[in-house]
Amino acid sequence: MTSVDEPKLTKKDFKSDQDVRWCPGCGDYSILNSVQAAFADLGKKLHETVIISGIGCSSRFPYYMDTYGFHTIHGRAPAVATGVKLSNAALDVWVVTGDGDAMSIGGNHFIHAMRRNVGLKILLFNNRIYGLTKGQFSPTSPQGKVTKSSPLGSVDYPFSPIALALGAGGTFVARAVDILGPHLQSMVKQADSHTGTAMIEIYQNCNIFNDGAYAGFTDKGVRDARMLYLEHGKPLLFGADNDKGIAFDESFRPFIVEGDDLGKAYVWDETADTPAPAMALATMDEAKFPVPIGVFRRIDKPNFEYGVNQQIDAAVANNKQSLKDLIYAGETWEVT
């Protein structure tokens, strides 16, 4: 979408004139920063970019981007965005949502956007807590989470947004972390190049209501040992010196290999025709296994708006009808 006669925009150009009002120290700042940087690198145009959000802390995002933006209602951003993308497929449509917005109140729209493969890019800020309503547990909070609405610990089992997206037929499913800027930017760029629905779950720290939710694997000291970077075509290795790996048994149950068995580490294929390996990684027990980030799945599939608009274009081309023909159609009679 770049043209020769217009200068490429910089990160600064994507900043709106509105003061950013997230809590100081919120992970959202680093995500905003990474997205602005990635958008500038991608040569995006302000007027071709639309950011649509629901309700929650993350959903304030559009106000801080000097693009088109629509801050809609709770959980419904994918539905509004679907209407936008269907109506003008040339627009670059991004949805910004959170774990409450997308996984709870808007769960239905999220799975159906995935199923249809609409050309939307969904950034799901997952802080495993309700921030804007001041700290209740969310559908991604671990069981036993003590909050104001669960003083004895939450009884709900959480679900994994990645597994949900895969189960719903997601064609691009990835995970990034707020503080790992370059990796996050790379995920944003890969999502951008995907034609169908692209979903990035972004682990985001809420330093007020759920501080340190991810510290157990994102802190510098433990990061190498506790995180698994997914790289297409490369074996699933982790550890300080890549001395450990993940392999699967015949039932796609993961297990850790090391030493002489390191060569058995599974070679990652994000384009695999089965979602099984991605699902296996998405549902690994966080306490026993490293936490994977990167692209879980990326497959090509014609997208929804293409199919819809193709039908309309073909009908318009093949069956021209004037308004008069339409209204005067069927069995008519004259009264004189």
Partner: peptide, 28 residues
């Protein structure tokens, strides 16, 4: 009425239906 450029979207629920319509109106 596709031949008259009418787009129809059978949504996942009533809320998505109106929200998509709002998205379409926002888009022109």
């Amino acid at each position: 009425y596709k031949n008259l450029g009418v787009a129809t979207f059978q949504a996942e629920d009533e809320i998505a239906a109106v929200c998509a319509a709002i998205g379409a109106s926002y888009t022109g």
